[in-house]
Design a protein around this nucleic acid. Structure first.
Lengths: 230, 230
DNA sequence: ACAAAAGTGTTATTATTACACCCATGA
DNA sequence: TCATGGGTGTAATAATAACACTTTTGT
């Protein structure tokens, strides 16, 4: 029908992991203008016959080699200010991807230079290309909020993990450490949060810790609340 | 940059209100193919120099006459399956708009026929055009979830309202009635949820009820939880 | 006086917090 | 045996849920 203004549509990714006791995001150095040489979030054009989620999964695989089975991938929000890209009118559908610390930091084929960087540094000091600082901030806030009332923290852990490893996710993402003893009870007794295996490990030192897998719940009841807010 | 696949981008709206003791959504009858004669969510193309939020606010004003100051408007999600519109490749950025019951049900200039309809009926029986049933379902679920941990229920109330009116929002949106006495305490004592005025009303019958205004908080601490979930 | 809805008090149950303390391993 | 972290017990506090009861209006 009729006329309509043409837009470019991209899928961009806030890929988060817990690495070296910090929440880190994947950033890619731009090889061409605009913002040449600056760091940016990974992403690219949605193809003509591709759904948005599929585009995000494809970009994730291209830039990191992570397959869709090993991440939590969810749509974050869309960004479409008229001047956000000086070349043309672009609407970006942003996704967050949460993954366990990965074997290879950057195994991309597409990216000239890709690396993990702590989100605190990315949000504080340097500027990312386009409005990617804003997108990253929104993605981190989404992840922080969802740790409260969903079992999403397990997405940052390998397939089998100890309660202490799960707790470290909360420490790092929230920047505040829950009490280890109370956290243990909460995690093991909240229905569907984690499921025990028969195996144990001593990789964290001390007494052997039981290994768990992610449970089946989509929500935590009751939630794990951070302290008061404003 | 160079080549990129062109997309049409629309902003569509899930406009919700509490009306006749039911959660209702605004739907518009389509005057042309495809889906001619079917009901659809209001919305339209984003203009070449318009931000996404501005497009949503403009469509809302055009279809309902509601100004941005009198609604809660927030981005919901984007939908871009390749075949969701048979005419062309369209990505829709969906918004939810929550408003108090309105003076005029439909005062649109754009819409041939617009009306409020209970979301239960829209989600159960009839089919909306395109993937709008899915979008509506997602929007309703977002609203339900946010009532738990934000003061968003006040968005469904007029500027001054009684605690009973606020409680009826929860009754209708959740389909479960909180205890009036406990709800009263929770609403009045949770920091920033509601603020008392000097005025009272007897419009609900019985003893006069104090009128309140929406508070300044963005989150409820502690949250108002629905019963258990799966 | 009565119905109807507002609002307060009280108690049992449940969840959170802050610890003391024991357990099982490696060195 | 000691250090290290895993895991359980317990008591104080806070939040929730259920419901008796008083208050203030309209009719």
């Amino acid at each position: 029908m009729a006329e309509f203004p043409p837009f470019a549509v991209t899928a961009d990714l806030v890929v988060l992991t817990v690495r070296d006791d910090a929440l880190q995001a994947l950033v890619i150095r731009r090889g061409e203008p605009p913002y040449e040489g600056d760091w940016a979030l990974p992403g690219g054009f949605v193809r003509p016959d591709e759904d948005l989620d599929a585009a995000a999964a494809r970009e994730l695989a291209e830039e990191t080699g992570i397959s869709r089975d090993h991440v939590h991938l969810e749509q974050l929000a869309s960004y479409g200010a008229p001047d956000r890209d000086p070349r043309m009118r672009v609407v970006t559908v942003a996704y967050i991807a949460l993954a366990a610390d990965l074997p290879s930091p950057n195994a991309g084929t597409d990216a000239a230079d890709a690396r993990w960087q702590p989100v605190d540094e990315l949000l504080a000091g340097r500027r990312l290309a386009f409005d990617h600082t804003r997108i990253l901030r929104d993605g981190v806030e989404r992840a922080r909020a969802k740790l409260e009332y969903t079992p999403l923290a397990t997405a940052f852990c390998p397939r089998e993990f100890t309660i202490a490893e799960l707790r470290r996710v909360y420490e790092v993402v929230w920047g505040a450490a829950p009490d280890p003893r109370n956290f243990h009870r909460k995690a093991t007794k909240t229905e569907g949060f984690v499921e025990p295996t028969e195996r144990t490990t001593t990789r964290d030192g001390g007494r052997p810790a039981r290994l768990y897998r992610a449970g089946r719940a989509h929500h935590l009841h009751p939630p794990l609340l951070r302290g008061g807010e404003a």
